[in-house]
Amino acid sequence: MKTSDALRAIYPELERRIVVTIMGATASELYALGHRPNFFYLEHAMGLASSMGLGIALSMPEQQVIVLDGDGSLLMNLGTLSTMARYKPGNLLHIVLDNESLLSVGGFPTATATGTDLAGVARAAGIPRVTEARTVPEFQKAVSDTLRARMLTTIVAKVEAVPPASYYMDLTLLENRFQFWRHLQSLRHSSPSPPAAERVG
């Protein structure tokens, strides 16, 4: 499965949710499908997209947060799995697009290319629901099932290491940051839900 096809298949679900992506191919492919004010592309700080997603999910328990992570990024911050598992926010979906490669810097193989099983690592870290997908229909079903389940889930989707048509995004980092922040504030103010700082876990 190609990253672009995987993201296209779930775009209707992403469209309405708070989305945090890693940099590189994933960000470019999502941007090419259509930017939304509820999409944040973390264009550096590799490994921390899931940590940002956790911070948002714990702060806005009434909102669904979806993180688009990668194998290279997750391998840089495996501790995030144990931290997410510790607090288990049911409104956090952690998707790992595993292309077994540091694609954006030239395609160097990551440890998933030589046998590291990120789904197994996630399970062992205590993530309550872990699924794997190898085809677009499997992936689409895994995402829609998870969004109904409202349980912290890591989906590891095996994707081809194919670069995007273009890495260009006509969006400055700070424009994205302030637009995203303002969008989240509008969600807070329109929400009838209890205060966001409620304790979780």
Binding site: S51, L54, G55, L58, L184
Partner: peptide, 21 residues
């Protein structure tokens, strides 16, 4: 939020800030 390593804490606090907390 008890983290495994301090880098995570920067990401978590950044997420909280963007969420208005």
């Amino acid at each position: 939020v008890r983290v495994a390593r301090e880098e995570e804490a920067i990401g978590i606090a950044a997420g909280a800030h963007l969420a208005g907390v």
